[in-house]
């Protein structure tokens, strides 16, 4: 029970810090879309999500280090699956653009991180299923 609650706390804290990062990202995007800023302020606002993201990555790594070996393997496999699927997506889009250039409104490489996150969840689900 104690172990379960500590795991739940760990997952909640990862989600919470990840949520803060996404929130900072959307606030920064919203401000940049709505208002005109001086170039130096624009750069700062554009890069604002980066420290939050780096902290989140650091936090996730620290939490993974605290897990036992099977869970570390599950996360490693999930990361590998997500990386491979993202590379496949990038290749597919790259090859497709040899035929027709995609509209920036329809697709931008800035959207890639959302796919990466989704692939990571898919990888986690697959790995959990394998070892459950």
């Amino acid at each position: 029970m104690n172990q379960k609650s500590s795991e739940l706390r760990r997952e909640l804290s990862i989600g919470l810090i990840g949520g803060v990062w996404v929130l900072v990202y959307f606030i920064s995007s919203l401000l940049l879309d709505k208002y005109k800023f001086a170039s130096w302020l624009g750069v700062i606002l554009a890069l604002l999500p980066l420290p939050a993201f780096l902290f989140w990555v650091y936090y996730v790594f620290r939490q993974i280090q605290g897990m036992d070996e099977m869970k570390q393997r599950i996360y490693l496999e999930a990361g590998s699956i997500a990386f491979v699927l993202t590379v496949v997506l990038v290749f597919a889009l790259g090859f497709f653009e040899r035929f027709a250039v995609l509209s920036p409104d329809a697709w931008s490489y800035g959207d890639l991180w959302m796919w990466l996150a989704m692939f990571l969840f898919i990888g986690l689900a697959l790995s959990w299923r394998r070892y459950r």
Partner: peptide, 8 residues
């Protein structure tokens, strides 16, 4: 380790 690891 976790109980899940022992089970696996």
């Amino acid at each position: 380790v976790s109980r899940q690891t022992i089970n696996a």
